[in-house]
Design a protein around this nucleic acid. Structure first.
Ligand SMILES: [Mg+2]
Length: 240
DNA sequence: GCGACAG
DNA sequence: ATCTTGTCGC
């Protein structure tokens, strides 16, 4: 899979903010998505080691709408930037970029554990990734970042709009009855309603949509398996 | 100046 | 995000 736009990642905070503003002009949340043409979803998540020195990324390919796990790709990368609210994409995208560029499968849509346009400058991680690869993307976060909204009803399926400066940027969705809701916003190439529809169809029995739930598990599994190892060689330590 | 603040 | 066992409620 090739990127449409590419830019350096080791930039200063000021440059990162400027890049977001520039790239946000390319974001499209107007063009409707034809659900019938969506067959392959790539869900992405990243896990960290306890020392906060390494990231383990997972890209899970799931068949839609059957939600059948097709494949999983993992990566390992050093943490080079601290976490700053609003700049998450500059920290996590570099870790998974290598895998995505090597993928040959025809990805129809990205689902990310982050926000899309519900972001201070309209370019959350999901939007950033969507623009770079020129593909539809959805942001599905566990906590709000910006925007105004009221809590949806306690019943599964209840929703409430998220507004940012009078603009609709997403929906809060109660994916499970009496359980904290999730925050959905389009990343790129689909509308807020489309993003909500896709996520709703990805909810199986848990709060987190199946693709992201599995990606989260795979990222953590990769950490368990790989951390402590060096270039594929198992290192064992024994006490005196 | 204060509070908010994805992962 | 990560550190962690039991406990309460649906
Ligand atoms: Mg995550």
């Amino acid at each position: 899979m090739d990127v449409k736009f590419s830019h350096i990642w080791n930039v200063s905070v000021e440059e990162a903010l400027q890049l977001q503003t520039t790239l946000s002009r390319l974001v499209d949340i107007q063009t409707p998505l034809h659900l019938d043409n969506i067959h392959l979803i790539a869900a992405i998540d990243v896990a960290y080691n306890r020392e906060n020195t390494e990231m383990f990324g997972a890209v899970v390919l799931m068949q839609f709408p059957e939600l059948k796990l097709l494949s999983n790709f993992v990566t390992r990368a050093p943490i080079v930037r601290p976490y700053l609210p609003g700049l998450l994409s500059f920290r996590e995208i570099p870790a998974i970029l290598p895998v995505l560029e090597k993928l040959s499968e025809p990805i129809d849509l990205f689902m990310c554990d982050a926000h899309g346009v519900a972001h201070p400058r309209g370019l959350g991680l999901a939007s950033h990734l969507g623009v770079l690869f020129d593909k539809p993307s959805i942001g599905c976060a566990k906590k709000p970042l910006v925007g105004d909204f009221i809590m949806p009803g306690e019943r599964k399926g209840s929703t409430s709009p998220i507004k940012l400066n009078d603009n609709l940027v997403g929906y809060v969705l109660r994916s499970r009855e009496n359980v904290k809701p999730i925050y959905i916003s389009p990343g790129h190439k689909l509308t807020p309603e489309d993003a909500l529809r896709v996520v709703e169809r990805c909810i199986r029995s848990y709060r987190i949509p199946e693709p992201l739930r599995v990606a989260h598990q795979m990222a953590n599994r990769a950490r368990r398996v790989m951390e402590g190892k060096v270039s594929g060689i198992r290192i064992e330590t024994f006490e005196e």
